[in-house]
């Protein structure tokens, strides 16, 4: 039981943070600080330079040292404030943030990127588009995969051959050129919401082949089992058999597939961004953030840039954790 509550709290907490990034993030995802590029994570202090303790944590301003590094200037303290109202640049509006420091101080708790944008805020904002798109794409891929795979496995014959050859074609075809063609048909300017559905749609529609093949195999063996055969003997319809007898057997496979596909689809977005189909600068997405890590320099010189990796790992393992718990519960109920 404890595991379950822990899992639910982690799951809900993470998703709240990711799906409503405006609450937690101290800055906007596209806010540039051109004088603070690649700043390391800001140190939060309780003791000042003179050794005095302060109850409210604070940060020091950072100054570039010339060799692409930064040092702290202890001349002024910027206390960390909670629930602050800050101005959104170039719009005249104000927004409530969970925490922040007064300008000109900056707080980059995960460091800053090549444009001096706060990485922590970008990870949160990026998660929204990536996780939601990956979830939707996984749902799409599994839906198509389950329906087609089960149809192929249960019906056999020509349907089976047709669907399986189609899936082979789907896996062997180089999607690269298809995606180029898709890009050419679309207008250059795509609104963020359209980008989101486009991402989910493209990834989902191209990702059904593998799950379909697995599900077909399982359906093939399932339909030969005694209770399925007897149900058939009593005149049960195909759909009834699928819903009542086959689908419950596929459930664990679908769960594990989902857990595998979600991180995989987060990565697929990198490729799509490269083709101009995904989220592009300055919009943050985990795919975009991970793409930066493909540069040697960033890996060796700016270690904090790997933060999005941990975000992906954390979210993926939460899914795995949850799937695991549910599977156990399903099993214990069945017994």
């Amino acid at each position: 039981m404890k595991r379950l509550y822990f899992g639910i709290v982690l799951f809900v907490g993470l998703h709240c943070a990711i799906l409503f990034p405006g609450l937690l993030a101290p800055y906007g995802p596209a806010e540039q600080n051109r004088e603070y590029t690649f700043a390391p994570p800001t140190r939060v202090h309780w003791f000042d330079a003179g050794g005095r303790f302060h109850l409210r944590p604070f940060v020091y301003a950072i100054v570039p040292t010339g060799d692409e590094g930064y040092s702290e200037s202890t001349s002024a303290r910027y206390p960390v404030r909670f629930f602050v109202s800050v101005a959104v640049p170039n719009s005249g509006q104000r927004k409530l943030r969970f925490f922040g420091v007064d300008a000109p101080g900056r707080i980059f708790i995960l460091g800053s990127d090549a444009y001096g944008r706060d990485l922590f805020s970008r990870v949160l904002y990026g998660g929204r588009i990536s996780v939601a798109a990956a979830l939707l794409a996984t749902f799409l891929a599994l839906l198509i995969g389950t329906l087609l795979g089960a149809a192929a496995g249960l019906r056999g014959g020509l349907t089976d051959s047709a669907i399986m050859r189609l899936s082979e074609l789907g896996m062997a075809l180089s999607w690269f050129y298809l995606l180029l063609a898709v890009r050419a048909f679309l207008p250059l300017r795509i609104a963020p919401l359209e980008t989101f559905f486009l991402l989910a749609g493209v990834i989902g529609v191209t990702g059904w082949a593998r799950p379909a093949r697995l599900i077909r195999g399982l359906a093939l063996s399932a339909k030969e089992r005694g209770f399925v055969m007897s149900a058939r003997g009593f005149g049960a319809s195909e759909f009834y058999i699928f819903r009542r007898h086959i689908l419950p057997q596929l459930k664990p496979l679908i769960f594990t597939q989902a857990v595998i596909l979600i991180p995989q689809f987060i990565m697929a977005e990198v490729t799509l961004s490269f083709l101009g189909l995904g989220a592009s600068e300055p919009v943050a997405s985990w795919g975009n953030l991970l793409a930066d890590l493909q540069q040697y320099r960033i890996l060796v010189a700016y270690w904090w840039m790997v933060a999005p990796v941990f975000a992906v790992v954390l979210v993926s393992s939460t899914y795995f954790f949850m799937a695991n718990i549910f599977e156990r519960r399903v099993q214990s109920v069945a017994i």
Partner: peptide, 27 residues
């Protein structure tokens, strides 16, 4: 791509909305 992103930010200060669209070079 960085230039485009910087220019988008520069022009947003004039109230111009710029979308950066990186495409494959042949495209």
């Amino acid at each position: 791509v960085k230039m485009a992103t910087l220019i988008a930010d520069d022009l947003s200060q004039l109230g111009i909305t710029v979308h950066v669209v990186p495409l494959e070079f042949r495209a």
